[in-house]
Nucleic acid binder design. Sequence first.
DNA 1: GGGAACTCCGGTAACGTTGCCGGGATTTTT
DNA 2: AAAAATCCCGGCAACGTTACCGGAGTTCCC
Lengths: 333, 333
Amino acid sequence: MIKPVTIKDLARQLNISISTVSRALRNANDINPDTKETVLKLARELEYEPNFIAQSLVKKQTRIIGVVVPLINSNYFSEALSGMTDLAIEQNYHLMICQSNERVDLENKSIRKLVACNINGLLISVSKDTKSPEVIREAQNKNIPVVMFDRIIPEVSCTKVIVDEYEGAYKAVEHLIRKGCKKIAHIGGPRDLSVSKKRKQGYLDALRDYKIEDDPKLIIHCKSFEEDASNAIRKVLAESPDAIFCINDLTAIMAIQYARKKGFSIPGDIRIVGFNNDPVSGVVQPALTTVMQPGYEVGKLAMGVLIDEIEKKTAKHKLFTLRTRLVTRLSSR
Amino acid sequence: MIKPVTIKDLARQLNISISTVSRALRNANDINPDTKETVLKLARELEYEPNFIAQSLVKKQTRIIGVVVPLINSNYFSEALSGMTDLAIEQNYHLMICQSNERVDLENKSIRKLVACNINGLLISVSKDTKSPEVIREAQNKNIPVVMFDRIIPEVSCTKVIVDEYEGAYKAVEHLIRKGCKKIAHIGGPRDLSVSKKRKQGYLDALRDYKIEDDPKLIIHCKSFEEDASNAIRKVLAESPDAIFCINDLTAIMAIQYARKKGFSIPGDIRIVGFNNDPVSGVVQPALTTVMQPGYEVGKLAMGVLIDEIEKKTAKHKLFTLRTRLVTRLSSR
DNA sequence: GGGAACTCCGGTAACGTTGCCGGGATTTTT
DNA sequence: AAAAATCCCGGCAACGTTACCGGAGTTCCC
């Protein structure tokens, strides 16, 4: 085991004081250029690397950013994480990533641990059940800038980065209307989830703006995302719509398959649109029109504004909304 | 700005010494149970959290584990990361995750940064082009245990965790043979990638074991994964096989779609099997038979053996091989 | 009842680094 | 030529924690 070289070692070998070595390495101004040179030379020779931990302790600056997401293994979140890490390494920050597995207790535990690690910033997307954000506030009280993304809650006052799901839904429905659809059904998600509400509102507003009466029989909520989607699809199909706007891609794909089995042609008889732009949507037959959420960009932006707050020491508590993009494919042409 | 609570604060408030507080919190044995209780009580009240950085400095143990993957945003790797973080937080370790984006320079940069952070262990899945592992060896020379997973290279001597792709491929082809297929084609990946080689070998050995002559015309390599898959599919289909074993699910799905367009029925005329068990494979029509790789378990195991090496200070340089599972669906029934 | 063992606590020195202060030596200014 | 400014450097304290040592007080045992 080779012990790492420290500034003490350099000082001893050069017969100068520790402070002088430190100044030489830090490129401070009250240092003789010659001594600086000799110090740097020896440092290179011995392959000196500053001890990050020691620096962090005294400077109270770790350049570590904590990230908490409900689940790493999801297309959207892993995209966001990807964007974050790319920007972080570029800006010389380090990431500590935790997942809450949608459990509030694990979420709090993770945040506490991250704070104990002296993180300089916190990036968080809360779990489904997080209502009371005390632990997050604790972090803020310790002067740690916090940025929430995607899964945000109003109880915390901080900068937030989200995707404009309302607009995404609106665009999707508008697209169907322009294709000539008049009887557009909607298969929604759990009634009280903010995601469901926003997407449904976009649907309703698009109909209204184009003077199409909304029909309660054409709107079905699924209690859970996967569970009774097939039931919902059956019911909706009985109303013989000419288009279906689905809460997500999985539901849309199930709808396509069910409709085809019943002899409908897609998009000939019924046009179908999903949401998320999962990798699946490009390879199913027919390829699915869907709403792309810029996960990578969300991650990058969230990281960007967080670093800004860390370095400028200003918490603006702004809301950033990224726009979605409608990806039109065969299922709605 | 509220300054974090330290053991000094606890000591002052209780009128006892810092060392006593430290002992009480560390649950040492030469401490009065009563004083220990009062200390713990106050610690809970003031929400004391030990300062990780300070602990790391004195104990020369950061409990930080560095992870480098080619890409976070992939189903397999994000599953592995998920397994790693779950085990890490359970064992009170922290993760620093970097992605190399398949670039050797970024990979090296990431490793160097992680080492400078005094990581206690390194978990790495190398990029496609990584041939010379000097930077990894540097880490090993600094006594940092290294565990490679999935994308391993023989040049580095360390513990490795992989999935038995050979066996997965063998099982897939064996399954096709048992279904009565005699003319089984293979669409492979880049010729020199270890993944491609292993899967092809499993294919070849299964044929041999069942006394089926392999036919070079039925084997096609795609130079890149996505690029010329469609070309390969066209060529292979011209040989009119009764089954195709594809290097991954995406290729398999493309094969299904192309074959159907040409009037073949799946699985009636041609049976098709993929590899990976991407979420896609369950929803395409027909649902795709594929080989499941236990990403989550790979991550958990890799993290487990790494922690073991860190704590037991023994590098066994073993090879762990996890088994795959054949997921049979409609495309091969 | 006196030495031995045990219990429990405080003081001090580290870990590797930075920041501040003071001061000697040199240079500049008046 | 004296005063002032500048240039460099060393010493010391700190960051929050742990490890080690010594010692006061209590209990134990013959």
